[in-house]
Design a binder for these strands. Structure first.
Lengths: 248, 248
DNA sequence: CCCAGCTCTCAGGCGCCTCTGAGAAAGGGC
DNA sequence: GCCCTTTCTCAGAGGCGCCTGAGAGCTGGG
């Protein structure tokens, strides 16, 4: 079976082979980081630096999804999309765009089932969106044929689509950052995650601050999730934090 | 079968051949120490002193992993990483970085499956991180095809990911130094380890103190692991300490 | 334009971790 | 049994990691 580098079972194609993703961004550093994060999900990834290279790579790779920067040196991201759809109408696209960019045009294009994230983004967000896209497009399935249980750790349950979290059936309200932090923890239960690791995944790639914010948000999460209950979030001094079901 | 110099079965490639590691550091002493420690694991190791040499060596060696100093005389560690991934997308990277250096820059670098340790580090830590990286990347397997049992000595069990230690099912809380010391002992069961050996492996390479700390930490470990039970940690007078399962 | 929620910085403080030194205990040679 | 060496134990100082509260900057909605 295909697995992610963290040992979790990977999201795969319906036939069980690795999903193929093409990353298109002219910033080599950003492309590198994205490529690494998607490979970490157990997917087969290729990168391209401009529209022409992207189209060439797409013909060769036949990707299931494309992560596409809207601003490319040689051609518009939308042009790339149109050309892509000519040969591969099934492909999903996740746009990367600047916050103040023309969101109207994005909105129009994403009507077709595609999605977008605004720069600067966190890797957790990109991966989550991509997983959502692929799942909705029917291009991916969970490795287990049984129904997808979603994210469940002990009596803690997260519904990613509804953005709802409950513990012991009780609804818990979370801010966006709290939600992403908890998602990352829940995707890696019983595993100690260092503050640097958390920072890399949950905060934007251009975040300049110190790892202290992680402590802060962990304390917020504890107040909401562990308040008055048996704690699930544990500090491992000198190492990081770990989320565990109460009995374990 | 491939074995470590200590006689332990080595972590190998899936095909059973020796794992290949490239060490890149401009400090020859440090590179030497690292090279020795990794060879001791039964791996095939080469060293390079700068980025250009690293890239050349990587093309020749085709390493599974690279231990890479972030500060190199000729080029940035991140640049080396990107160039490496151009030709060898599967390679794992373990960064070495100064603690007080701009850790922000490391943020994002480790976004893929990669990892880093801060100087000064202990050899146990470097080896453990590297083993973790290779294991998660699916590049390594235990020599026995049966599933990896992790670290088990008698009724003493260590889960490195969760950073949990149990004896006879009972959870034992350990400080970071205690944890690393025990890991070293458990990786070398039934083998007498001298205080000097332990100091070299578990404490940072720049530690100035004397071997007395080893005695002290052994006594801490005994209180937590052997307390009220049949002892597993034994003193071999004039030679060192040895960890043995109770019946053996 | 004001208000509310979110995010992040700063600084204080507590508690654990690490290491030192001195003295007690144990082991081995004679 | 005596003495020397090695090892163990204890107490404490210092440092650092982590947690928390207060508040400032920002943003989006009313």
């Amino acid at each position: 079976m295909n697995t992610t580098r963290s040992g979790r079972p990977a999201l795969t194609r319906p036939d069980g082979t690795a999903l193929r993703v093409l990353v298109v961004d002219d910033d080599p550093d950003l492309a590198e980081v994205l490529t690494g994060a998607l490979r970490y999900e157990g997917w087969q990834v290729r990168a391209a630096g401009d529209g022409a290279a992207a189209l060439a790579a797409a013909r060769e790779l036949a990707p299931d999804a494309v992560v596409l920067d809207v601003m490319l040196p040689d051609m518009d991201g939308f042009t790339v999309l149109r050309r892509l759809h000519e040969t591969q109408p099934e492909v999903c696209v996740l746009f990367l765009t600047a916050r103040d960019a023309v969101e109207d045009r994005i909105a129009g294009l994403t009507a077709g089932g595609d999605d977008y994230v605004t720069k600067p983004f966190s890797l957790e967000e990109v991966v989550a969106r991509l997983r959502g896209l692929l799942r909705r497009a029917g291009m991916a399935r969970r490795p287990e044929p049984e129904e997808d249980p979603g994210l469940v750790v002990g009596d803690l349950v997260m519904d990613e689509d509804a953005r709802e979290v409950t513990r012991a059936g009780e609804l818990i309200e979370l801010s966006p950052t709290e939600f992403e932090l908890l998602r990352f923890l829940m995707r890696n239960p019983r595993r100690v995650l260092s503050k640097a690791q958390i920072l890399d995944r949950v905060w934007s790639y251009d975040f300049g601050g110190r790892a202290h914010v992680v402590e802060l948000y962990i304390s917020y999460l504890r107040k909401k999730i562990d308040a008055g209950r048996e704690p699930m979030i544990h500090t491992v001094r000198g190492a990081g934090y770990v989320l565990k079901p109460v009995a374990g």
